[in-house]
Simulated scan of single mutants.
Amino acid sequence: MGMFSIWHWLILLFLFAIAASLVGLIVWFAKRSSKAPGNPVANAQKRLQQLEELRAQGLISNEEYARQRAAIVTGL
């Protein structure tokens, strides 16, 4: 073991374990944040197009269209 006692080795092991845990935590947060939903503007555009189609088909009234459109735009 050289000049290091068992306590020195345990302290080094503990420090390496902390460093490995921090790296693991950073990787976990990075992977978790990459699973975020796609572009919210593109999603809103798609929802607005679907809403317009429903109105054009007469499935929703103009008032309901305006209410839903306002909710989508407010969510941006």
Rank of each mutant, 00 (worst) to 15 (best):
S5F: 04
P40D: 04
A20C: 07
A56Q: 15
P40N: 02
L76E: 06
A70W: 06
E64N: 06
G2V: 02
W7A: 12
V41K: 09
I60T: 05
G58E: 00
E52C: 03
L10W: 04
S21C: 08
A70I: 04
E63H: 07
N39I: 03
S5G: 14
I6E: 12
S34I: 09
L12F: 11
P37H: 00
W9Y: 14
L54S: 12
G58S: 01
L13C: 10
W28M: 07
G58D: 02
H8P: 00
F16N: 09
Y65N: 05
A19M: 14
A70C: 01
R67L: 12
G2F: 04
G24F: 02
G38F: 00
V27E: 11
A70R: 14
Q50S: 14
M1C: 02
A17T: 13
A20I: 10
K46P: 03
T74F: 13
F14N: 13
A42Y: 00
F29Q: 12
L51V: 04
T74L: 13
W9R: 10
N39K: 01
A36Y: 02
I26K: 11
E52Y: 06
L51N: 02
E63M: 05
G2S: 07
L22W: 13
K35Q: 13
A44G: 01
L15C: 12
L51A: 03
G2E: 08
Q49T: 14
R67Q: 14
L76N: 07
R47E: 15
M1V: 05
L15E: 09
R67S: 10
Q49C: 06
I26N: 07
L59P: 01
L10K: 07
Q49L: 15
R69I: 05
L59K: 15
S34M: 13
Q68P: 04
A71Y: 07
W9E: 09
S34E: 15
G38S: 04
R47L: 13
K46Y: 07
I26S: 08
S61I: 00
E52W: 05
E52V: 06
L25Q: 06
A71D: 15
I60F: 05
T74H: 14
N39W: 01
G2A: 06
G24K: 02
V23N: 06
K35R: 12
F14P: 01
L51K: 01
R67I: 10
G58L: 01
R55L: 12
L48T: 04
L10Q: 08
R55A: 15
N43M: 09
R55V: 02
P37D: 06
T74A: 15
E53Q: 14
S5R: 05
A56G: 07
F29A: 10
A66C: 04
Q68D: 08
W28K: 08
W9T: 05
N39G: 00
S33P: 03
N39E: 00
M3N: 13
A19C: 10
L22A: 11
K31V: 10
G58I: 03
G24Q: 04
Q49S: 15
Q50A: 14
K35L: 13
R47T: 09
E53I: 10
P40G: 00
K35C: 04
A30E: 11
A19I: 14
